[in-house]
């Protein structure tokens, strides 16, 4: 697993640590442009995180260690997932056969502890958000997994390095329809996992329909800073997955490959911003239907991959 720790791995870790909070800034800027506003600075999430880390946390008397462990788990599992996804030309710092399972369950573990922290507050409101998060995660996870199976089948690899590497280019040449369906499905999974419109509105704090924001209402100070950072890490991981799936081309030049992936993640953030500006949030009752649709698209993509 750790045979060598070359320079590119250091770059990978630095990018993973520094780049993610830029993406929410890009989304907000796109939304501001659509609304005809100047919008907040691109680096606003960085400022927010620094500001929150300096602040003091207010903890409810009913909470236990689980409440504070939620944000820690969100950041650590997000970092773990980000270390598994190959970004540049070289392999990811953590790579082994079957790491796709770890990726999916690292993200699920983070979600589990976020939900546990929400339940730990004893607030019915937060419990409701946790229940919704669990329901939608149940529907989104099969879509992610079926897509991973389709890619594994087409590339013949079981590690993300192999699956999202040059072998995927061959996959696109023989079964483009299958991968296109998986790509669409994963984009829907990206939107739901990161609580974006049309599934959830990250800007609401007062409505009964919110999902993620309601789970972290009681967090404050450094804990809330970690929640923000963990959320941006998750967005970065999913964006990187989508970009690697959409552009498996390797230029051969290490810096150029990094630029392609980073520009791609920013492109995904722009896409999310455009969707948030042009779509309304779905009714809660319609969300399972859309998620099932994404799952079925992934299933269909997997069937096509198996047929090829």
């Amino acid at each position: 697993m750790f045979e060598s720790f070359p320079f590119v791995s250091v770059v990978h870790i630095l990018v993973v640590l520094v780049a993610p909070p830029l993406l929410p800034g890009v989304i907000n800027r796109v939304k501001a442009i659509f609304a005809g506003r100047r919008g907040q600075p691109l680096l606003q999430t960085y400022y927010d995180i620094v500001k929150l880390i300096r602040k003091e946390s207010v903890l409810s008397e009913t909470t236990t260690w689980v409440f504070l462990f939620g944000p820690v788990a969100a950041v650590s599992t997000g970092l773990l997932a980000a270390l598994l996804v190959p970004l540049g030309n070289a392999s990811a710092p953590l790579s082994f056969e079957g790491d796709l399972i770890l990726l999916a369950y690292a993200l699920a573990l983070g979600r589990f502890f976020t939900m546990a922290a929400a339940l730990d507050t004893g607030s019915a409101f937060e419990g409701m958000g946790a229940a919704r998060e669990a329901t939608y995660a149940c529907l989104a996870e099969p879509a992610l997994f079926l897509g991973l199976i389709a890619i594994a089948r087409l590339t013949g690899g079981l590690s993300l390095d192999g699956m999202l590497g040059p072998a995927l280019l061959h996959g696109w040449s023989v079964a483009a329809e299958s991968l296109l369906l998986v790509l669409i499905s994963w984009f829907v999974v990206l939107l739901v996992e990161n609580c974006r419109i049309p599934f959830d509105d990250p800007n609401t704090h007062l409505e009964l329909t919110m999902i993620h924001e309601v789970m972290v209402l009681d967090h404050s100070g450094p804990a809330f800073g970690m929640v923000l950072y963990g959320a941006s890490l998750k967005l970065f991981v999913f964006s990187a997955l989508v970009v690697r799936l959409a552009f498996p081309v390797r230029t051969g030049s290490e810096p150029l490959d990094w630029i392609v992936v980073l520009a791609g993640t920013i492109g995904v953030a722009v896409g999310v911003g455009v969707i948030e500006s042009t779509l309304a949030r779905l009714r809660l009752t319609s969300i399972p239907a859309l998620l099932t649709g994404a799952g079925v698209l992934s299933l269909f993509g997997m069937i096509l991959a198996l047929v090829h």
Binding site: P288, A289, T292, G293, G295, V296, L299, F300, I303, L306, V307
Partner: peptide, 21 residues
Amino acid sequence: GFTPSVLLGGIGTGAAFLFAS
């Protein structure tokens, strides 16, 4: 319901591929 319809359609598509093979 519409969601089970889509699910059944997905399963049916898989079965159709299996049968056709």
